[in-house]
Design a protein around this nucleic acid. Structure first.
Length: 885
RNA sequence: GGGCGGCUAGCUCAGUUGGUUAGAGCGUCACAUUGACAUUGUGAAGGUCAGAGGUUCGACUCCUCUGCCGCCCACCA
């Protein structure tokens, strides 16, 4: 055995351990030892190739690796697929910015091809950084299956998905008002729009002097595109106008305005009448569609007024607003001006105000019925093959019926709410970086013949769509595009899909998780995953979001360099619960560094002071302390396994830490020092080694490096990452509960002595023995106490005599006897009162005590209902009686 | 406007079917220190579980209302 330094130095070992793992090939499930029949699959949420990893990624990696290592040790075919996301708009914008800063050029200056080359070079560099960071975290993912949302294989999946959705009638091309970013020159999905609080002026005006209704608007410039005025159908003021059509000359622009009634109009806002601009507002478009009104596009893609805007054509939106307001004032049509609060829609990328525009785009239809194509292998329960459904219905159904479980559960509500309000998903983007839309247009043909979907058609005159697909289109396919789809015969697809758990931050529940569910149910007829585990966001010490501008970013790599990977992983897992944000500070990581070192020193002590083999099975306990620690180990093992199985990672870590530190290290290791002198050293060694080995295995998923290191120090040849997860240690049967209780009583008693008398373990003390039952208890426990005698100190009143007795029983060298003072009067009185209350309660529900005699409160019906609770009340009473003696 | 979450020790947070005396880490204070570990050990102090009602034999836990903080969705022309 190599010499073990006093303090664990992670940086000295982690590289070598990482290499051993990767060289072993065990990250690839097919290469794992033993026969494995059950799969456990996680697809890694692919980080964007826009830069480097942050703490959010570190949480994701720590949690996913924890699950994967746990399941791998439990004998499953554990597969974790790594990958990266091209993040279309995000990456393109970033590169555009870089080029603008350095070379003062736009993407149009470079041209599509040259620009894309630049983006790809940037993405490749970013990819390498990310992969390196993922490896640093100790992630045991299968690199041989690494994927990228924009690589060739994923391109095939995307094209196939597009084609299939189109054939199913779920993908259509439509002219609709979309969110347009004039700066990015692209559409934005509804959830890519952000809102900025601000103030604006609300103008009340009339289209013309004789127009019967005044209109309130914050966007006068769009009014040249109005085709109707909408009022609430219940509004007494305007009811009589509904149905009329009025022609006006609005500042030189001729308008035909129909007065319509619509429930969406709030009679209390402004004048209670809304100028309907079908081309530049989604709500207005809705009103227009219901009333069959025409749409006039008065704002162009470049953010300037179109020819339809009459005299205002060519002006920017803001210019036009100024001019129109000025002109209206001049002719006296403005009736009021007031400042109102407003939520301005802006592009989530560049902050430019979003301009709603009508545009030809590709949409995924979520409300259209289609015959559901069921998966043969993993059919969705509750839907028949060929049944007419909408995507929305299925997306909702799979979560409602528990076929996909979301942890924490409360996010299911949020999910349903989102689904309910979901509109058709605009999937095309006017940017260059991304999957090009697989549609070809013919310049001369017309109607349905003018375009072809899928493979490039034969013949000349065809040109591919210049747009690309929303990045979520390709990442929506992620669970199966990484497993060989569209090749239905792909072995991976059959073995690993549906995946087991999808672990990610709650912030992309809609963006990504919902899209994966959509794609998987539509294209495969099965769920993409059985469970969704959502972790919280990592914030700084003060609870702020980490951001560059605040300068409060904690870089995972810095923390790893400073405290070691194990400490970083622990600090992200322990002390945080699913779906809740956590605060991270250096002190916290330092605390876990201390624990890593503690474990190292536990290992160091055991390895340097014991000899012999490490038993595979729990050794037979020789002393009560042995039985105590082994049974505590058994209980801990069971608890940790159960908690990990239900994704309660923090609780599992805490339980393990408490046992490791407060019981195994602080007590058993101390006891063992004395025990090895007096009792059987070989037996004690065996128990020390067995417990250590078990602990290392239990800790491995949390802190893979230090456990792997110590495992090797223990002389094990095979890696701990493929060791069998500790199973039922089975000592609960051996150890009578009463006996266990006795040992624990003694341990607690000794703690009390030490605290009361402020003694060193080796100091001799004298204490008077308390009366009665306590004395009996002590004598019963004499043998147990003697086991601990060398580590602790015990005293009796007539200590010489009792010491002899005890020494005779235990063979211990020195016995100082003591009995702890337990049970203060106050708590005993409380317990007695509680017992009485319970007795009366049980009598009541058994009918032995009349209502009035009890409290006079509970009506008979309630008592009937409460009878079933009798058992728990009786149990509690039983416990209290025991305690009171 | 609609929805969700949080409010528990000085700080950060646990508390999974309502049940004895509400827990941990850090911090604070006291004591210890030839020890596998000072990246240590033993203890202590510290809580009307945001507030008010209600249900119950019993509420941190379930219901209603209120207050403050945060988040999400929609969006008002």
């Amino acid at each position: 055995m190599a010499e073990m330094p006093k303090a664990y130095d992670p940086s000295a070992h982690e590289d070598a351990i990482r290499r051993r793992w990767e060289d072993s090939g065990y990250f690839t499930p097919e290469k794992l030892p033993g026969k494995r029949t059950e799969s456990f699959t996680i697809v890694m949420p692919p980080p964007n190739v826009t830069g480097t990893l942050h703490m959010g990624h570190a949480v994701m990696l720590a949690v996913e690796d924890l699950m994967i290592r746990f399941e791998r040790m439990r004998g499953k075919r554990a597969l974790w697929i790594p990958g990266t996301d091209h993040a279309a708009i995000a990456t393109q914008t970033k590169v555009e910015k870089l080029i603008m800063e350095k070379e003062k050029k736009t993407r149009h200056d470079l041209g599509r091809e040259a620009f894309l080359k630049r983006v790809e070079a940037f993405a490749a560099e970013s990819h390498d950084t990310i992969v390196n960071q993922v490896r640093m975290m100790g992630s045991s993912c299968d690199w041989s299956r690494e994927a990228y949302t924009l690589d060739a294989a994923r391109g095939e999946s995307v094209n196939e998905a597009f084609q299939q959705l189109y054939d199913m009638g779920l993908l259509y091309r439509g002219d609709r008002v979309i969110n347009w970013c004039p700066r990015c020159a692209s559409t934005l999905a509804d959830d890519e729009v952000e809102y900025k609080e601000g103030e604006t002026t609300l103008y009340t005006f009339r289209y013309a002097k004789d127009f019967p209704i005044a209109i309130a608007t914050t966007r006068p410039e769009t009014k040249v595109g109005d085709t109707a005025v909408a009022v609430n159908p219940e509004d007494a003021r305007y009811k009589k106008f509904i149905g009329q059509e009025i022609r006006v000359d609005f500042l030189g622009v001729p308008l035909t305005l129909k007065i319509v009634g619509h429930r969406a109009v709030d009679a209390g806002f402004g004048t209670g009448a809304l100028g309907v601009t079908p081309a530049h507002s989604q709500v207005d478009e809705q009103i227009a569609r219901e009333n069959d009104l025409p749409a006039l596009q008065v704002i162009g893609e470049d953010g300037t007024m179109t020819a339809l805007a009459g005299a205002y054509a060519g002006l920017s939106v803001l210019e036009a607003r100024k001019r129109i307001v000025a002109d209206l004032k001049q002719v006296g049509l403005i009736e009021r001006e007031e400042t109102v609060g407003q939520n301005l829609s802006v592009c989530y990328r560049c902050g430019t105000p979003v301009e709603p525009l009508p545009k030809l785009q590709w949409f995924i239809a979520v409300n259209t019925h289609f015959p559901f194509a069921q998966s043969k292998r993993h059919p969705i329960q509750g839907i028949k093959d060929g049944q007419e459904v909408t995507l929305k219905e299925v997306m909702s159904h799979v979560v409602k019926t528990g076929q996909i479980k979301i942890v924490p559960e409360r996010f299911e509500k949020t999910y349903f709410h989102w689904i309910d309000n979901l509109r058709d998903w605009c999937a095309s983007r006017q940017i260059w970086f991304g999957h090009r839309i697989p549609v070809w247009y013919h310049s001369e043909k017309k109607g349905d013949d003018a375009y072809a979907v899928g493979a490039p058609p034969k013949g000349s005159g065809w040109q591919q769509d210049g747009d690309t697909l929303d990045t979520w289109f390709s990442s929506g396919l992620w669970t199966f595009s990484t497993l060989g789809w569209p090749d239905e015969k792909a072995k991976d697809l059959a073995t690993y899909h549906p995946t087991s758990v999808l672990e990610t931050g709650y912030d992309i529940l809609f963006f990504w998780i919902a899209r994966m569910i959509l794609m998987s149910v539509a294209l495969r007829g099965e769920v993409p995953f059985k469970e969704v585990y959502l972790h919280g966001l990592v914030r700084d010490e003060q609870g702020r979001k980490m951001s560059k501008s605040l300068g409060n970013i904690i870089d995972p790599l810095d923390m790893i360099a400073k405290f070691g990977t194990d400490a970083v992983r622990l600090s992200l897992v322990v002390g945080s619960t699913p779906g809740n944000d956590t605060r991270l500070s250096e002190e916290k990581v330092a605390g876990f560094r201390n624990f890593t070192n503690k474990l190292w020193n536990i290992g160091r002590y055991v390895l340097t002071t014991t000899s012999g083999e490490t038993p595979d099975e729990p050794p037979a306990p020789k002393t009560l302390a042995d039985r105590w620690i082994l049974s505590r180990l058994a209980v801990t093992q069971e608890k940790v396994t159960a908690l990990l199985g239900t994704h309660q990672f923090s609780a599992a870590g805490e339980a393990l830490r408490d046992f490791t530190w407060s019981e195994y290290a602080d007590w058993y290791l101390e006891i063992s020092k004395g025990q090895k002198q007096d009792a059987d050293p070989a037996s004690t060694d065996a128990i020390l080694r067995f417990s250590l080995a078990t602990l290392l295995k239990l800790w491995h998923p949390f802190m893979p490096f230090v456990t792997e290191m110590l495992w090797k120090e223990m002389g094990e040849k095979e890696l701990i990452m493929v060791a069998d997860w500790p199973d039922h240690i089975g000592l609960e049967d051996v150890i009578a509960e009463r006996e266990m209780q006795r040992v624990q009583d003694v341990v607690i008693a000794i703690r009390n002595v030490r605290s009361e008398h402020k003694i060193n373990p080796k100091q001799e003390i004298e204490v008077n023995l308390a009366a009665g039952s306590e004395r009996e208890l002590f004598i019963q426990n004499a043998a147990a106490v003697s086991d601990l005698a060398n580590a602790c100190c015990v005293a009796f009143d007539d200590r010489e005599k009792k010491a002899e007795e005890v020494a005779a029983v235990s063979g211990a060298v020195q016995i100082y006897v003591f009995l702890p003072t337990v049970g203060d009067e106050k708590s005993e009185a409380k317990l007695t009162a509680r017992a009485e209350e319970l007795e009366r309660y049980i009598a009541l529900i058994e009918g032995k005590l009349a209502n009035e005699e009890f409290t006079g409160k509970a009506p008979p019906a309630v008592i009937e209902k409460e009878k079933q609770k009798r058992v728990t009340a009786a149990e509690e009473l039983d416990k209290i009686r025991k305690q009171l003696g």
